[in-house]
């Protein structure tokens, strides 16, 4: 899968990347106001396109579309609130509001899924481990060891299948036979991996593991720029939350669909801020092109 590398956005402190990568889906989960949903979906789609290319993104989104339908239908069939009746079956009434509500919830799910698709492109495993390791060093090391073992285990599985292939590749075998072969192969895998891991443990001891309080190679400094961005993220987050919970961003589906306290100005402002926050990776990248002489600063 293509992943855009070396973006200007990734020069930010990993904590900010985490705040963005988890903040965007969290905000998406908080409201089913159609406007905010649309903004978040658009942004999620654009950001994934930015990182993975349009083909990958379109393919993924189409692939996840059925989930939206499932959620919409479950809502339609299990929720009988709402005034506009679409059709009746027996004494149940299926309403337009319930369908729309279902679609909104489905879109929310889709948006969250699309956001998560970009998660590891925004926050690389390396940076994730750094953030994780600051408070949980042993757990982060363990996780790093698991990541190292994954390709190795896959290779072992291939070797085992190759080596034992002579006995088990017979397609005439029944399912019970095949199951038995596979069980034996997974036992081979256990024993081989465990024996090998003894040497890993020795190698850790040989390099003084557990001798002293561990320090970390990874270090990222919070710069002034990072702090400014952090402030921007915080303000954006608070503004959107305020709008969702306290003000213009409320939207009611039942019994009829309408916006609460329709303060259009407030809604517009928070929507613009929301856009600004969600599109951070993109506008930062654009900004790069007009850097030029601005990096030179006379000392005051």
């Amino acid at each position: 899968m293509y992943t855009r590398k070396h973006t200007i956005f990734e020069t930010l402190h990993p904590a900010l990347l985490l705040a963005y990568a988890s903040g965007a889906p969290i905000l998406a989960m908080l409201t089913n106001h159609p406007l905010f949903l649309a903004i978040s979906f658009l942004a999620a789609f654009c950001v994934q396109t930015f990182y993975s290319g349009i083909r990958e993104t379109a393919k993924n989104t189409l692939f996840m579309l059925p989930f939206v339908l499932v959620v919409a239908l479950i809502n339609l069939f299990t929720n009988q609130r709402g005034m506009t009746i679409l059709f009746r079956a027996g004494h149940y009434a299926y309403t337009c509001e319930s369908l729309c509500y279902g679609i909104a919830n489905g879109m929310m799910l889709l948006t969250v899924l699309v956001w998560f698709r970009s998660f590891s492109a925004i926050l690389s495993n390396e940076k994730f481990l750094y953030l994780f390791g600051r408070h949980l060093p042993a757990t982060a090391l363990l996780l790093s060891m698991i990541l190292k073992l994954f390709p190795e285990t896959r290779h072992k599985i291939q070797s085992i299948q190759f080596a034992q292939g002579g006995f088990s590749n017979n397609p005439k075998c029944g399912i019970k036979e095949r199951l038995k072969h596979s069980m034996r192969q997974i036992s081979s895998l256990l024993e081989w991996s465990m024996e090998d891991s003894i040497e890993t443990a020795d190698s850790m001891k040989a390099r003084a593991y557990g001798k002293a309080e561990r320090t970390s190679y990874r270090s990222y400094k919070m710069t002034a720029k990072d702090r400014r961005m952090a402030a921007f993220f915080a303000i954006a987050f608070l503004a959107v939350c305020y709008s969702i919970f306290g003000g213009s961003g409320r939207y009611t589906y039942f019994p009829v669909m309408r916006m609460d306290h329709g303060n259009i100005l407030e809604l517009t402002v928070s929507a613009v801020i929301y856009l600004g926050f969600l599109f951070t990776p993109l506008w930062m990248e654009l900004q790069l092109q007009k850097g030029g002489m601005r990096t030179w600063e006379s000392s005051k």
């Binding site: 190795e152 599985i157 085992i160 850790m204």
Partner: peptide, 26 residues
Amino acid sequence: PRPRDIVPIAVMSAIGALGRVLFAAI
């Protein structure tokens, strides 16, 4: 945790996550 506490967890996690490859037929 000492290496002996860590290493088996790492190995078992990897087997747990990838073992399904061996049973791809089912």
